[in-house]
Amino acid sequence: MAVNDEAAFWSIIAYLISGFVFWGGAGAIADHFLGTGYLLIVGLVIGIGSSFWLIWLRFIKQ
């Protein structure tokens, strides 16, 4: 069905945003309180990894 593509399209964007926001945000907060500078990047990498894992499970691995 063609309409399934539309839902998957927007769900992928939503997954990517929430991965970045949650783990990147956690990294930024940790940076702010611990006084370090690298945790934001670590958080962003974890976020992108978890987003891709979820997208893989939901849409790619049939």
């Binding site: 939503a14 929430s18 926001v21 783990w23 974890i46 978890s50 894992w53 979820l54």
Partner: peptide, 22 residues
């Protein structure tokens, strides 16, 4: 153990990000 990483992202997607993108 991976649930610890993935579940917050999944919850955030369902409860906040999907309606937000809408």
């Amino acid at each position: 153990p991976v649930y610890l990483i993935l579940t917050p992202v999944e919850l955030l997607t369902y409860l906040v990000t999907r309606p937000l993108t809408l």
